[in-house]
Simulated assay, not measured.
Amino acid sequence: MTAVFSSEWLKLRSVASTYHAMATAALPIVLGIVWTLYATGLADERGSVRAAAPEQGFLPLLQMSLAVLGVLTITSEYATGTIRTSLVAVPKRGTLLLAKSGVVGLTMFLAAHVILFVTHATSRLMAGDRYLGFNEASFADELPMLLASGLSATALALVGLGLGAVIRSTAGAIVSVIALLFVLPGIAVYLPPPWNTRVSTLLLPNLVPQIADERLSSRLGDGFLPPWAALALLFAYPVVTLAIGSYTLRRRDA
């Protein structure tokens, strides 16, 4: 099993798409600096502003970038035909997907949290003693949201891997991730009450504040899951997707 993990790690770090996706995922750091400069300029003029925290405002970019990388981890092998070589080296297809999941999960977990913490730290250092709204709370108070955000990005990367195993098409899997991350939450808001609240609380993007023990937007009413339930549901997304992907991988020809 160790050899399979090592092989998958070698694959991940030897293709250009990994570095392109990681560079895109790291953009929140740069955008956070630009946003903080803009907010501090407004604060110098007005005395204070209420700006969104950059690590939260640019979280969808991080989530989408890592999800795309999760998709490419397997669909690129189908596109190039190297999946056949992989299956010859690792005849147990479930083991192959498990190794990919381990490598993707660990890499994305570390990358997501490094990016989020660096974005958080640079924006607060640049803000200084100016009142920008997002620098009111202490680091301890914001830590649950940072950790939940990193876990959500990791979960989406694994969901992307699972969808890639099921659909086998890079475009199709990415469109599915976009639907999960952006389209479904937008549709859920317009469902009749109380279904808008019930559905919205269960969607992956809305689990982050619930894991951090914060209520959702007031437009969704009082829908709220306890942190342990939201965390369990977050884990369920990649587990279910990867289980379907593993079943599909075993049943189909490469």
Rank of each mutant, 00 (worst) to 15 (best):
A121Y: 15
L42F: 05
R130Q: 01
L59Q: 03
L62R: 12
V68P: 10
E55A: 15
I174P: 00
W9E: 02
S14A: 04
A230Y: 00
V88C: 01
V90Q: 07
G160P: 05
T24M: 02
V183H: 05
S149M: 01
D222I: 06
A229M: 04
L191D: 03
L59N: 06
L146D: 06
G150I: 07
A43Y: 10
T24S: 10
V239R: 03
E214H: 12
G57L: 14
T122P: 12
I211K: 06
F182L: 13
F117T: 01
D129C: 07
S65T: 00
A140H: 02
V208H: 15
T170S: 15
T80P: 06
T241D: 12
V90P: 02
P185S: 08
W9L: 03
R46L: 02
L184R: 00
A232Q: 00
G94R: 05
V4E: 13
V30E: 06
E77M: 13
S17K: 10
E45D: 10
I174S: 00
V34F: 14
L146I: 03
L27E: 11
G172H: 08
L125S: 00
A236Q: 11
A236G: 09
H120T: 10
I74V: 09
K11M: 00
L249E: 15
N135P: 03
F224Q: 09
L225Y: 08
G160N: 07
A171D: 03
R250A: 07
V239N: 10
T85P: 08
L204A: 09
E77S: 13
L216C: 09
I167Y: 08
T2H: 03
L37Q: 11
R50I: 14
A165Q: 14
E142I: 02
S17A: 15
S7R: 09
G223R: 01
L216R: 01
V49W: 12
G128S: 09
L110T: 13
S14E: 01
L234Q: 15
S17C: 13
L106H: 11
M108C: 13
G245W: 14
L42A: 12
W35D: 02
A236R: 01
L66N: 05
V199Q: 01
L96M: 03
G102E: 03
G94I: 11
K100Q: 01
I187S: 11
S138F: 09
Y131Q: 08
L233P: 00
F5E: 02
L220A: 02
M1F: 04
A21V: 05
V177A: 04
L66H: 10
R219S: 15
Q210N: 15
V30R: 06
P144W: 05
L66D: 04
L146G: 05
V49T: 14
T107W: 13
T24A: 09
T36E: 15
A229N: 03
V175H: 14
S152C: 13
D141R: 13
I29M: 15
M126D: 00
Q63V: 11
V103G: 07
